[in-house]
C-alpha cells in the first residue's frame, strides 16, 4: 500500500488543480478533459508528449541521482540552458567529416554539463557552501551567459526572435530517424530510446555496483560513510557529475533532436519539473520512466489549456506541478500514519 502512495497523491493533486480552476471561472471537468486527452489527439501530439517525456526522464534523473547521495540538486535548469547553447555553438562551428564529429559534439556537450554541475560539488567540498544557494546562483549566471552568447555571437540573422543559427545540415541527421518519421515529424527523436537506456543502466549501476552502494550509504548516513572511508570527493563528483551529464542530455535532445538550434526560453522549467518527476517515482530510476510519461502528458495538456480556455494560461502547468509535488510529498505521511495505526490494532 505504501508503494501506491505517490499515485494516490498524484490523483488527489490533479483533482485539487481542477478544483482550483473553479476560482478562475472555468469548468473543472473541461479542464480535466483537456489535461487528460490532449496528448492523444493525433500522432503528432503523442510524439510531442514523448519528446517531453524524454526531457523529463533526463531532468528527473538529474534531480534523482544527487538525491541518492542526500543532495538537493536544483541547478539542472541552468545546466540545461548552458549545455544547449554549447551544443548549438558546436553544431555551428565543428567541421563535419565523419560520424566522429557527432560523437565529439555529444561528448563535449556532456562535458559542459558536467563542469557546470561540478562547480556546485567543488564549492560544497572546499567551501562548505550550501548546494541549493550555489545552484540557484549558477542558474541565473548560466542563463544570463546563454542569453548574451546567443544574441551577440550566434544570433540567427534570418529571424526576429532571439535564437541561434541552425546547426549544420549534416548534424541534423535525426531529421529522418524512424521515430520522427513515424510520429509525422513531431519533436520526438531517438533520444527517447537513449533516455530509457540511461534509466536501465543507472538502475543496474545503483543496485549492483560498489559505487551505487557507496552513494546510497552516503545518502542515508554521511557520518557513517566517512567512517567507512568513503570519500566525500568521490561521491559528490560521481553524483553531481552524472546529474550534469543528464542535464546536458536535455540540451542535446532539444538541439540535436528537435529544433536544431537554441531558442531563448525553450525550456518550460524542465529542471524544476524534474523534481516532481523524481518525487513521483520515489527516486526509483525505473519508476522515473513512468512518472516522466505521466508528467509529460499533464504538461502537454496544461500547455494546451492556453488555447482551450479563456482565463487559464500555460502557467497553469506550474501550478499543476506545484500541487502535485505538494500532494505526493505529503502522501507518504498519510500512508505511514495509517500503517502504524494498523500495527497497533493488531
Amino acid at each position: 500500500m505504501k508503494k501506491a502512495a505517490p499515485i494516490i497523491g498524484l490523483i488527489v493533486g490533479i483533482a485539487l488543480a481542477c478544483l482550483l480552476a473553479l476560482f478562475f471561472r472555468e469548468n473543472p471537468l473541461h479542464v480535466l478533459k483537456v489535461l487528460l486527452t490532449s496528448s492523444y489527439n493525433s500522432k503528432f501530439d503523442f510524439g510531442l508528449t514523448l519528446f517531453y517525456t524524454t526531457c523529463l526522464i533526463f531532468s528527473g534523473l538529474a534531480f534523482s541521482i544527487p538525491m541518492k547521495a542526500g543532495l538537493f540538486h536544483i541547478g539542472a535548469e541552468g545546466q540545461i540552458i548552458f549545455s544547449a547553447v554549447v551544443a548549438a555553438y558546436l553544431g555551428h562551428v565543428l567541421p563535419f567529416d565523419t560520424s566522429f564529429s557527432i560523437l565529439l559534439l555529444c561528448v563535449l556537450t556532456a562535458l559542459a554539463g558536467f563542469l557546470a554541475a561540478y562547480v556546485i560539488a567543488l564549492l560544497k567540498l572546499y567551501r562548505q557552501a550550501h548546494e541549493v544557494v550555489v545552484a540557484i546562483m549558477l542558474n541565473f549566471i548560466l542563463s544570463a551567459f546563454a542569453t548574451w552568447f546567443t544574441i551577440n555571437r550566434l544570433q540567427n540573422p534570418n529571424s526576429q526572435n532571439p535564437e541561434t543559427h541552425l546547426i549544420q545540415p549534416s548534424f541534423q541527421f535525426l531529421n529522418n530517424d524512424f521515430l520522427k518519421v513515424y510520429f509525422e515529424q513531431s519533436a520526438v527523436s531517438s533520444f527517447f530510446l537513449v533516455a530509457i537506456l540511461f534509466c536501465i543502466v543507472l538502475f543496474i549501476l545503483e543496485q549492483k555496483t560498489l559505487w551505487g552502494l557507496q552513494i546510497r550509504a552516503y545518502g542515508s548516513n554521511p557520518l557513517a560513510a566517512r567512517r567507512l572511508q568513503i570519500s566525500d570527493f568521490k561521491i559528490l563528483t560521481i553524483s553531481l557529475g552524472l546529474a550534469g551529464v543528464c542535464s546536458a542530455l536535455v540540451g542535446l535532445t532539444e538541439v540535436l533532436g528537435n529544433t536544431f538550434q537554441f531558442k531563448i526560453g525553450f525550456s518550460p522549467q524542465y529542471g524544476f519539473l524534474g523534481i516532481a518527476v523524481a518525487l513521483l517515482a520515489r527516486n526509483n530510476f525505473l519508476g522515473i520512466i513512468a512518472s516522466a510519461f505521466l508528467m509529460a502528458s499533464l504538461h502537454k495538456g496544461a500547455s494546451d489549456l492556453d488555447l482551450e480556455t479563456k482565463f487559464l494560461t500555460r502557467d497553469f502547468s506550474l501550478i499543476l506541478q506545484a500541487i502535485i509535488i505538494f500532494s505526493v510529498a505529503s502522501s507518504y505521511y498519510f500512508f505511514n500514519y495509517r500503517f502504524k495505526k494498523k500495527v497497533k490494532l493488531d
Binding site: 478562475f24 536544483i74 522549467q269 502557467d315 497553469f316 506550474l318 501550478i319 509535488i325 510529498a329 505521511y333
Partner: peptide, 23 residues
C-alpha cells in the same frame, strides 16, 4: 504537519506562486 521535506515544499511553493500570479 505533514512532514514533507522543507526544500521540496519550498521549491513547490515557488512554482505555485510563479504560476498563480499570472493567472
Amino acid at each position: 504537519k505533514l512532514k514533507a521535506h522543507s526544500i521540496i515544499v519550498g521549491t513547490a511553493l515557488n512554482l505555485l506562486v510563479m504560476g498563480l500570479i499570472p493567472i
